[in-house]
Each structure stands twice: as structure tokens, then as C-alpha cells.
Amino acid sequence: MYFLTDELIFPPVDSANVEGLLAVGGDLSPERLLLAYQSGIFPWFDNDSIILWWSPDPRMILYPDQIKISKSMRKVIRNEQFRLTRNTCFQEVLEYCSSVPREGQDGTWITDDMKNAYLELHEKGIAKSYEVWEGDTLVGGLYGVDLGNVFCGESMFSLTSNASKFAFIKLAEDLKAKEYKVIDCQLHTDHLESMGAQEISREEFMKFLN
């Protein structure tokens, strides 16, 4: 196991263990976070845990032009139930992502230090948010790190049915238009797979970053 120091460096991703755990410790500075994403690494840990850094193999990704939109979601989009904004209330999205309960998950890894780091990345134009509104009420959204040709999705929240799906679909449509290579979804979930995401090897994913 690699223990990080104050030096701004990560070990090679192929030294991660079978679960994808690469390193522990270090800090959550914006500089380290950005280096991590650029290197195919992301932080993920419990609120009371030491910082854990991951680079799993395989990696869950979505090609933006392969987003799957169900018949029910097409109806939601046609009916204009939701309204989308981008980067208008990043901090609110961050707060909701850290506080909205998720099935099978206790607590949050989005600590105060993590929030501050992502807010700094947002101020630099690197971390971005999508907000979903029902009338004047914020009901869903997502945020992630924009690397220019790869968007690293970090977290989504939904206060009403289909709101986070709507945000994800709109993200994929935007990135398709901008000819982004992939959306990094990090780890497999049935929900992401149902929307068109798939697993590729870490080696293949690293080619997109490099």
C-alpha cells in the first residue's frame, strides 16, 4: 500500500490492488485532486476514514453518443417537466449530493475539506454542475470534473423521480456535441448500465486521458 506524503505525486495506477485501491493519505488540495483525475485516480472514503485513492480495473464509462433514453424518460423530456441550468448554483448541488440519503450507503465521503476543494476547482472553471429545476425548486443535479475531453462524473442527487436521470442525459447530449471522448462513471452500478454505461479496462481508459 502506497502512503502519500506532502509531495504532490501518485504511484502508477497499475500498482493498485485488485479492488482498485491505489494509495492512502495525502490531502484534498485542489492541486492534488486535479492531478488525481488527470492520472485516472479518484478519492472515495467514509466521512471518518483516512483518505483513500482509487483507480479500479475495469472502469465504468459512458460514451456520450451511447446514452440510452427510456420511453418514460422521453415522455418526461417532451412534457418539459424539468428545466436545466448549468453552473448556476454549484455549491447547492454539492451540499445536496453530500446530504441526500442513498440506498445502501451510510454517511458521505463529501467532507467539508472535499467541498472546499471542489469549490476551488469550480472557481477555476474545472469542476462543473448541472442543475434540474421543477418550477423554481431545485430538485436534482450532478457535478464533476471537466478535463477537456473527459468529464469525470462525481455525484448526483434527486429529490424527485427522474431528476438526476434528466441531468445525466443533458450532460451526455452536451458532451456529444462537444465531441468529448467519454464520461467517467468510475464504478459499475445497474442504474448507470441501464443508461448505456459500460466497463472498459483501466488501460483503455488511461488512453483517453493521455
Rank of each mutant, 00 (worst) to 15 (best):
Y2E: 06
Y2G: 02
E7C: 07
L8R: 05
P12T: 11
V13S: 04
S15G: 01
N17I: 08
N17E: 15
E19W: 07
L21W: 09
L21N: 04
L28H: 06
S29I: 10
S29A: 12
P30H: 07
L35F: 08
F45E: 04
L52E: 13
W54D: 00
S55H: 05
Q66R: 15
Q66M: 12
I67S: 05
I67P: 00
S72P: 01
M73F: 03
K75L: 11
I77F: 10
R78Y: 10
R78Q: 15
E80M: 05
F90E: 04
Y96P: 01
C97F: 02
C97D: 01
S98A: 15
V100F: 03
R102C: 04
G104R: 01
G107I: 07
G107N: 03
I110D: 00
D112P: 00
D113I: 02
L119S: 09
H122I: 00
S129I: 05
W133S: 10
G135D: 07
V139P: 02
L147A: 10
C152E: 00
S155M: 06
M156G: 01
S158G: 04
S161G: 05
S161N: 14
A163I: 05
A163T: 03
S164H: 01
F166Y: 14
A167I: 02
A167W: 03
I169F: 04
K181P: 06
K181D: 13
Q186W: 06
D190N: 10
S194Q: 10
E203K: 13
F208I: 00
N210M: 10
